[in-house]
Amino acid sequence: MNSVILVTVSRLLTGLLLVFSVFLLLRGHNLPGGGFAGGLVAASAFVLHALANGFPSARRLLGVPPRLLIGFGLAVAILGGVAGMLAGRPFLTGLWDKTPLPVIGKLGTPLLFDAGVYFTVFGVVCLIVFSLGEEGEED
């Protein structure tokens, strides 16, 4: 697709969407948002870039292969779940830091788990869209 408007807008929007995705991730525990929504928005930033500038460019921009994002996300999510077990509570038990930080709010292992979900969803969507899209370009 060769659209000047899309290319220009995507340059602005890609960064904006990524920032918005982190915002969604951080507010997600008690408010609408969370790792899943954040991951989708982050992936959509790269999908938008791919539509405007082609899939090879999007892969270069992403830097790491999507499958590594999935693996990393899963590993982080597992850590978030196991942290509760290390404290002698069941798997996935949330541990919270008592004192809230400015801007972010209270920190705890659910955030770690959510971050894992974020990266997993991010990776899965990128993997699916990239591999389907690239096949389409070959035809």
Binding site: F36, V124, I128, S131, L132, E135
Partner: peptide, 16 residues
């Protein structure tokens, strides 16, 4: 919805 999203993505790839 999340599950059907994954299933649909797989089904599309499979049909392709």
């Amino acid at each position: 919805i999340v599950i059907s999203f994954g299933v649909l993505a797989f089904t599309l790839a499979m049909v392709h």
